[in-house]
Design a protein around this nucleic acid. Structure first.
Lengths: 358, 358
DNA sequence: CTGTTAGCGCCTTCAC
DNA sequence: GTGAAGGCGCTAACAG
C-alpha cells in the first residue's frame, strides 16, 4: 500500500542504505546512482517515513517555537522570523533535509507551556525556542528549569527569545532578553521631561518578567525624577493597575486610574495593544490626546504608527530578535558571551505625548 | 541513558506490553497494576518516545495548522481557536494522549505551503487544517489537490477553514468558507446607499480566492447600484489597485488611486490592515475621514474598533470558525452536509464611512 | 562508493 | 487481565 524505502531501492536497483544516503545527502554517492534513485523516488511518489527515520537516527527535524499568544503580532513577528530562519532556506521542491518549524500557542498558561515542552520532548525535537516573558511563580520556574535541562541533555537546542535567562539551567544555548527595564525607564523619563507629574501606569499581568521589568523601569524613572521616594510604594501602587496584555484590560484599567486620580496628565501602558484600549477609554471620557492627557505604549507594533495620534512607544526589534533566535537554534550563529544577550529598546517619540496643560 | 518502556516495565514488575496499555489507555488493565505502572513512570521520569510510538502504531499525534501570515491576527485568531480545540482539553499533567497542535507559517508562498504539507505527510500527521485564502494558479491547485488527496488517503483528516472547497479533492473532511463575496457586496452597497459614486478599491494580491471573491462582491454592488455596466471592465480596473495584505500596500495603493481619480469619495480596502494604510495615506494628503472621504475595511480585527474614526468593516467570526475547524479535524463535530459550509459575514457600520460632501 | 546486518522503542496480534 | 514475540521503516556501523 504505502511506498517504503525498500520499494525505491528495488526500483532503482540499489540497496536501501544507498537510497537513505541519497535522501539524507550526508554521504558520498555516485552521481549516476543518485540520479537513478531520485528518479525512482519521483516515479513512486515516495515520502520518507518521519517517525521511522527519527527512531533510527534518534533525532527529528521538528523545531518548536512557543508563544504566549498567537493572535498577538508581538509573538507573530518573532515566531515568523524564527520560522523563516529555521525552515525557509532550502526548497529543493522534494522537501529534503528541511526542518519542520512549528509554533505552539501556550495562551500564557504555565501548564500548557510545560505540556508543550513534554510533547516536543516526546518528539525528540531538534530545537525549542521560547518567546516572550516568563512566569515568575517559583514552582513553575523550577519545573521549567528542570524540563529545559532535560531537553538540553537529550540534545535539543534550547533558545530563549525576549525572555530573561532561567536560573539553574545553563544547558541552554542562549537567551536573548529585551531591555524592558531600560526602555520603560526612558519612556517615563521622556514624560517627566515634558513636565508630567501625575502619571498612571497600566501594567501587564503580575508574575511575568516582562511586566515586572517594564514597571521597574517606570518606577526607576519616577524616583530619578524626584516624583517618588525610594520606598514610596503606597503612592506608586495607587497609580498602577494590573491587567492582561489586551485592549480590554487597557480600557478598564484606565478608567480605574482616572477614578483613583482624576488629575492624571499621562498614562503609560504595558504595551501598544493596552495603550489602544487606554486611548479608547480616555476618549470615551471626553479627553483629547495629547492635549488633555498623554499616552504611551511599548513594543512599537506595526499599527502604532497608524493610530491617531501616532503612538509614542518603545521599539523592540522583534523581527531581528526572532531571526537571531532561529539561527541560534539551528547552530547558524555563535551564541553571545555567556549565552546571554540584552537587546536594546529604542524610545520612539510620536504624537500621543505632549507637555501637560498649564 | 534514556529511559524506555522496558525500564518502566521492569520497575513496575510487569511486561512492556502492559505499560503500553496503561499509557494508551485503550485496553483493560487492573487498577492496581495501572497504579504501579504510573508510579514507575513518575519515578523514572519516563517520556514516551514519539517516533517509536508513531512508527509502531502508524499514526502520530501531530496536527498541523497552516497559515499564510503568522504575524497577522486574522490568522492568529483562527489558529489559536483551532489549537485550543485540538490540544487544549485534557491536561493530565503527564501529557497523556494529547495531540500536538502546531501552526506552520507559509508566508503566502505556494512552495512553502506544499513543503509544509509534505513535511506533515512525512510525520504522518493526524490532521491538517488549512486556513485563509488559496492561491488560484492552476498548477498549484492541481498540486494541492493531489497532495491533499494523498494525505487524506493516508488517514490524515484535512479541514479547510476560511478557504473555499478545492476542486478534485473530495476526501477532505470539510471546508468552511467565509462569505467574502456577500460581505464585499453589502459593504459597497452601504457606500452606494450613502451616496458615493466614485469608489476606489484597494485589492489584495491577485490569484487569491479571498481577493477575488471580495472584489467580485464589490463589483456586483457597483453593477447593482447602476455605477457600472456588466462589462464595464476598463473603468472598474482603473479604480482598482492590487497589493499585498499589509499596511504598506494600503498606503501606496491609495496614493495611486488618488492619482488616477482625485475626486474619489470613498476607498474600500481588501482588509482592515490595508484600510489602516489607506487612512494614513489619506491623512498625509490632508483629507479628513469621513468628512472628505470614507474608508472601509474587511475582517473586523480587534483594533478596528479602536482606530479613529472607528472602521466600518465586515465582521468575520474568525474565532468561531477556527474552533469549528479544530473540532472537525478531531472528529468532534459532524461535518456540514456535502462537507461544505459557508460562514456568514456581517456588515459593521462605524465612523469611517459617511455621506460624501455635497 | 555500495551492500549487509543489526537494531532504534514501541504496539499489537496471539496465547495463556 | 497479562506476557511473549514479531515487525513497523529506517539508519548506522561494518565490510567489501
Amino acid at each position: 500500500m504505502t511506498v517504503t524505502l525498500a520499494d525505491v531501492a528495488a526500483r532503482a536497483r540499489v540497496s536501501p542504505a544507498t537510497v537513505s544516503r541519497v535522501l539524507n545527502g550526508n554521504y558520498p554517492v555516485a552521481a549516476s546512482t543518485r540520479e537513478r534513485v531520485l528518479r525512482a523516488v519521483d516515479e513512486l511518489d515516495y515520502v520518507l517515513n518521519g517517525p521511522a527515520s527519527s527512531l533510527a537516527a534518534a533525532t527529528s527535524d521538528l523545531v518548536g517555537i512557543l508563544v504566549n499568544d498567537i493572535a498577538d503580532p508581538f509573538f507573530g513577528i518573532m515566531a515568523g522570523a524564527a520560522q523563516t530562519e529555521i525552515g525557509g532556506q532550502e526548497g529543493t521542491g522534494r522537501a529534503g533535509g528541511e526542518k519542520l518549524a512549528v509554533v505552539c500557542n501556550t495562551g500564557g498558561s504555565p501548564e500548557r507551556e510545560l505540556t508543550y515542552l513534554t510533547l516536543l520532548q516526546r518528539q525528540r525535537a531538534a530545537a525549542v525556542v521560547l518567546t516572550g516573558g516568563a512566569i515568575e511563580d517559583p514552582a513553575h520556574i523550577a519545573a521549567m528549569s528542570s524540563k529545559l535541562t532535560k531537553l538540553a541533555d537529550a540534545g535539543t537546542q534550547v533558545v530563549l527569545c525576549g525572555r530573561p535567562p532561567l536560573p539553574g539551567s545553563d544547558a541552554i544555548v542562549a537567551s536573548l532578553a529585551f531591555d524592558n527595564r531600560g526602555g520603560g525607564r526612558r519612556l517615563t523619563e521622556h514624560l517627566i521631561a515634558l513636565g508630567h507629574r501625575r502619571i498612571g501606569y497600566v501594567a501587564g499581568p503580575v508574575e511575568r518578567t516582562t511586566t515586572r521589568h517594564r514597571l521597574e523601569g517606570h518606577r526607576a524613572a519616577l524616583v530619578g525624577g524626584g516624583l517618588a521616594g525610594e520606598g514610596d510604594t503606597a503612592e506608586q501602587e495607587r497609580l498602577t493597575v494590573h491587567g492582561s496584555y489586551d485592549r480590554r484590560s487597557g480600557y478598564d484599567a484606565t478608567l480605574e486610574l482616572l477614578r483613583r486620580e482624576p488629575s492624571l496628565t499621562a498614562v503609560v501602558a504595558a504595551n501598544d495593544t493596552v495603550a489602544l484600549g487606554a486611548c479608547a477609554a480616555l476618549r470615551d471620557r471626553g479627553l483629547r490626546i495629547p492635549e488633555d492627557i498623554s499616552v504611551a505604549g511599548f513594543d512599537d507594533l506595526p499599527f502604532s504608527i497608524d493610530v491617531v495620534p501616532s503612538l509614542t512607544t518603545v521599539r523592540l526589534p522583534l523581527f531581528e530578535a526572532g531571526a537571531r533566535a532561529g539561527r541560534l537554534a539551528m547552530g547558524n550563529e555563535t551564541p553571545p558571551p555567556g549565552g546571554i544577550a540584552t537587546i536594546p529598546a529604542e524610545l520612539m517619540v510620536r504624537g500621543s505625548t505632549a507637555p501637560p496643560r498649564a
